[in-house]
Amino acid sequence: MFKYLETHLPKLVLAPTVIAMLVCMYGFIAWTAGLSFTKSRMLPQWEFVGLDQYARLFSNPRWQVALDNLFIFVFLFILVSLVLGLLLAIFLDQKVRAEGALRTIYLYPMAISFVVTGTAWKWILNPGLGIEKLVRDFGFTDFEFRWLVEQDMAIYTIVIAAVWQSSGFVMAMFLAGLRGVDDNLVKAAQIDGASKIQTYWHIILPMMKPVFFGAIVVLAHIAIKSFDLVQALTGGGPGYASDLPANFMYTFAFSRAQMGLGAASAMIMLCGVLAILVPYLYSELRTKRS
């Protein structure tokens, strides 16, 4: 008995988690995939219609808008967060005074939920309440900054708020990476006469590759599943101009009684996440084996 436990204990301890994950993650992914091939409307209905829902999905102008927005958002959000986070980390790494305090300040937005961020930025960006009014009150009466209420620009306000929220976190990742760089390397470079910029560009940044990968994977999945930020900041508006796929999915599956269509859009989102994760996992696993 004891021996049995000894050999099987790790498996027994892990079993509940594995089962929970199998059912709650993969089970429901399979369920959703199944639903996306049915004509389910208000409630699940197992009458299969093939790829009909996907065809309807891609002919829906609102989905096209959401998809375009996702590309804009993912690209800009990751890029700007990485650049800002990296710069902040490099500046903080110059042995500045009160680094602890500064670090905390930059990291703080991460502690706030997206709903709070969204609501705060909604007020800051509102033409009648926030920046536009402030600058106008300073005397620049022609100043205009009303992206929040413009159909073409609303998605960029979401980028702004998301970057504000996440760049501190990227900074922390890079800062940890920078601290791990061997001082001797930097010193050697200095002795060889490399300038500070050259040192960073040619020596330190290439060593940050794993951090870049890690940050991109974390940011990408934050971006693809973004829902609460849009809901709080723009509510998908003006019109549906700042919808993201997650908002689309929620609206159609739960308040529009088009469960099949919602499931189809969820599957497309899953494919988006996989497209990013699979190459990453592949490269990770391959390096470990070799």
Partner: peptide, 18 residues
């Protein structure tokens, strides 16, 4: 139905904001 009402909503709000 909710589906048709949703379609009207989408068109109306998109048009009004464009």
């Amino acid at each position: 139905s909710e589906a048709v009402a949703g379609a009207i909503y989408d068109t109306a709000t998109n048009y009004f904001n464009s």
